[in-house]
Design a protein around this nucleic acid. Structure first.
Length: 279
DNA sequence: AGCCAGGGTCTGC
DNA sequence: GCAGACCATGGC
């Protein structure tokens, strides 16, 4: 991987597998927006970033080589071998189609607390509105770190809030769930960092101690916040795929890559539902 | 206008 | 253990 540094840009060459456009717009993260110049801008790990693809290169703006090494390589999962994972999908038609359609989608490593909070908000909700709620949450309770850029508010901040104080973000019945999660995390009753290595079933149970966290939200938190790739969140779209194309579930050799398969199937069915359901 | 959305809780069998 | 009502809100 070669690196080139201009005045304001850092360019990583030979990044073949990451497609920024799809990765940031496939329903796993809710805080990225695309500018007219093609750059995506967002905030993660308390840092603001501008990024876009340019052929086989990745162009970073508003960051440092040190942050790329310590934060963004992990966040965008640049060191994981996606080709190898996808090579295991070849015996399953729908997985092969989905993987082909979703080339370049990586599973992001978001901060565990942000992922937990975001997917609590996601329940019985649609993606545009999830983005709006999270945006208002950050604007109201996060730290301002740039022009219209805010950090994701920490649990230590939100644990002090009442449902009434959260009213401006218009999260509806989910407000009390956000507060319960914040209290359990801020108090140390739940230690999210332990979930990186905890046996997976125990990790699920740990998260489901939080009010408003059931199997789906726990699974999303573990997949997108802790990079537990064996997790397989089942939302309404995944149930449609399963019913129509995977009556016997995932092939067993996919289990350790189930999270990748899930993200590809989710995006594929959502983008092609009318076409696929007619076939 | 009514249905749906990256679900979960609570109640009643 | 399982079905069904209910939950806030807004996009379509």
């Amino acid at each position: 991987m070669q690196t080139k540094i201009n005045d304001e840009c850092i360019i990583l060459k030979d990044i073949h597998t990451l497609n920024i456009d799809v990765t940031l717009d496939c329903g796993q993260a809710f805080r990225w927006e695309k500018n007219d110049d093609g750059f995506w801008h967002g905030v993660a790990y308390g840092k603001q970033l501008y990024i876009k693809n340019d052929g086989d290169s990745l162009i970073f703006k508003n960051t440092t080589m040190q942050d790329i090494e310590q934060i963004w390589k992990k966040y965008f999962d640049l060191d994981y071998d996606y080709q190898n994972a996808i090579s295991n999908f070849s015996q399953c038609d729908i997985l092969t189609q989905a993987a082909d359609y979703c080339k370049g989608i990586h599973i992001l490593s978001q901060q565990p607390w942000e992922a937990l909070c975001s997917f609590i908000i996601s329940q019985n909700n649609n993606i545009p509105r999830i983005k709006g709620i999270i945006s208002r949450l950050c604007e109201q309770f996060g730290d301002k770190i740039g022009d219209e850029a805010y950090t994701f508010p920490q649990a230590q901040k939100l644990c002090e809030c009442t449902v009434a104080q959260l009213a401006p973000i218009r999260s509806g019945f989910r407000a009390k769930y956000i507060i319960d999660a914040a209290q359990k995390v801020a108090s140390g009753e739940i230690n999210l960092d332990e979930l990186y290595t905890m046996p997976i079933e125990q990790a699920r149970q740990e998260l489901m101690k939080i009010k408003g966290v059931g199997p789906k939200v726990a699974e999303c938190t573990l997949l997108y916040g802790l990079h537990r790739l064996e997790c397989y969140p089942m939302d309404v779209w995944m149930k449609r795929v399963q019913a129509e194309f995977l009556p016997n579930g995932l092939p067993e050799n996919i289990n350790q890559y189930a999270g990748i398969a899930q993200q590809y199937l989710f995006h594929y069915i959502r983008m092609n539902y009318n076409y696929l359901s007619k076939k």
